[in-house]
Amino acid sequence: MLSPAEVLKMLVGLKEVNDLDVINDDAVLAASCTESDKATVRSMAAIIEEVYDSFDYEASPEFLAKLEGKSEQVQTMHRKLLDQTKRRDAVRRLGEAITQLLSSNDAFNLVNIEQHHRLIALKELAESIGRV
């Protein structure tokens, strides 16, 4: 059975390669968690899907902190510099941060404040894995 951190890695990895729906296959869950944790892992998968789908680096606390106190021109310049490569890199960092959710708060810095409740729920679910 996978540890909570490994479950997070599996879910993030599956999302990154567009295979997160294999979680609906019982065989995959049977190989990765106990019967009692299957519902938890499926809930975690749903949250990860939502976090990714609503992710916008421009609305992240990290990016907003960069703009704070800057003139409108500088803010516009920062937004213009946010090209596709940087956005893709932010998504990659998001995946890394979610896999380390149990030991680090980096994910909260990347995800819009309005979505933080999802991260909190994800962390709680991950921590509950293995507890019978």
Binding site: K9, M10, G13, L14, V17, V22, A27, A31, S32, G95
Partner: peptide, 23 residues
Amino acid sequence: VHAANPHLASLPANVKGTIIHSF
């Protein structure tokens, strides 16, 4: 595709195999 993903590549072999089967 899975081997190139660092998160999936770090999983145990039986889980990786099951995921490939499932896909």
